[in-house]
């Protein structure tokens, strides 16, 4: 036997072994007859909780949670629809009100009414059939950099089309960016059919469009060394600027244009097809509990849905939500999404 045969064999064995390992690697929701059940939670990539939080849930409930990430919010919803017949997880977190109707239309979820919903504002409970549970919310708002502002601070959406702020505003393409889409919705909610004229005026006033948030905030906005002083971001961006300042600062360098805010609500839902509905319900309850809810703000920079949850100091001091944010129903958004974004492309990108 020569050495090349041995090499060939070794390669083959390695391949077979790795295939076997692969086969053993996958695991679905399985409830062991004895011991603790394991359930899978699928989220978008940026979902983060503090270390030990899910472990504390496991300690109390005897339910193991396996976390799977699935790209951005759009990827999350699209892949859940594609895998509906054989879902990747038992619980999904991260579908927001702009995608909610699509998920509901696809019958992704089974209903569950958590007792903790009593502590959640009715305004956040967008599905009367309880197929999804609101977990957090936040506002997408126009931000402006305080020290570099040309003219007076903008106070209304109309101020953005004021020549005093010409060539100062940068926002994102609603077809490629979720805050970009939210801002488009804010203008539609405010102006109704007049939104098209408003955007035409924004174009005339030199609005700049980027593909994504990072590109706008760190590319064209002052914060990243750009030259524009007004940007579409979040109500929580000023507190983030303070918390992650370098060197540390006492006051936020940016502020929020509250008239421009669109409210985003994020939900969790139990995926149809789960084999562990009981455990999934317990996980939803845990996500609404104070432990989980108080962990949300500093990890994901959104606000807890449970009104009993205490807010971190920086949020109280520098962050504030809009009193009267723009909203549209999930049905309106899903029905018109394509028409709106296509019309937007015609007006703004030409």
């Amino acid at each position: 036997m020569n050495r090349s045969t041995t090499t060939c064999r070794a390669v083959l064995v390695a391949l077979v072994l790795s295939l076997l390992a692969v086969g053993c690697g996958g695991s679905d929701a399985d409830v062991a007859d004895e011991g603790c059940p394991t359930i899978t939670l699928v989220t978008y990539d940026s979902f983060v909780v503090s270390e030990g939080l899910l472990e504390s849930f496991t300690a109390d409930s005897c339910i193991e949670v396996e976390q799977v990430s699935s790209g951005d919010a759009g990827q999350l919803v699209s892949s859940a629809i594609l895998t509906k017949d054989n879902p990747t997880a038992d619980v999904m977190f991260g579908i927001d009100n702009t995608f909610l109707q699509r998920g509901l239309d696809a019958d992704l979820f089974v209903p569950y009414e958590s007792p903790l919903l009593a502590n959640v504002d009715a305004a956040l409970q967008l599905d009367p059939e309880y197929r999804v549970t609101p977990i957090d919310y936040g506002d997408v708002c126009v931000n402006y950099w305080l020290s570099e502002l040309s003219g007076e601070a903008p106070a209304t959406l109309d101020d953005l089309i004021d020549p005093a702020h010409a060539d100062q505003f940068v926002t994102m393409n609603p077809e490629t960016s979720s805050p970009g889409f939210a801002f488009l919705l804010a203008t539609i909610a405010r102006y109704g059919d007049g939104w098209e004229d408003y955007w035409q005026s924004l174009v005339d006033n030199g609005v700049s469009i980027t593909a994504g948030w990072s590109d706008a905030y760190y590319g064209e906005f002052i914060a990243g060394g750009g030259s524009r002083s007004i940007v579409t971001s979040y109500a929580s961006s000023p507190p983030a600027e303070v918390i992650f300042a370098d060197p540390p600062i006492d006051t936020a360098p940016s502020a929020v244009l509250y008239d421009s805010c669109f409210r985003q609500v994020e939900f969790a839902g139990i995926l149809a097809g789960t084999e562990a509905p009981g455990a999934a319900q317990q996980l939803i309850d845990f996500m609404l509990s104070s432990d989980f809810q108080e962990d949300i703000p500093l990890n994901m920079f959104v606000y807890p849905a449970n009104r009993d949850a205490a807010l971190p100091e920086a949020f109280v001091e520098f962050g504030q939500l809009a009193d009267n944010p723009a909203t549209l129903t999930p049905q309106e958004i899903e029905t018109n999404r394509e028409a709106w974004t296509e019309r937007w492309v015609e007006i703004v990108l030409g």
């Binding site: 990539d45 940026s46 976390q67 990430s69 990827q75 990072s214 760190y218 992650f244 370098d246």
Partner: peptide, 27 residues
């Protein structure tokens, strides 16, 4: 990012993308 992976299997490019998705000079 598309194939779906366990959350603790974050890779460096994904981590960089994530850090650049929140305001703050530190990040």
């Amino acid at each position: 990012s598309f194939v779906g992976r366990r959350s603790d299997l974050l890779t460096v490019p994904l981590a960089i993308q994530r850090l650049l998705a929140t305001p703050g000079d530190l990040l």
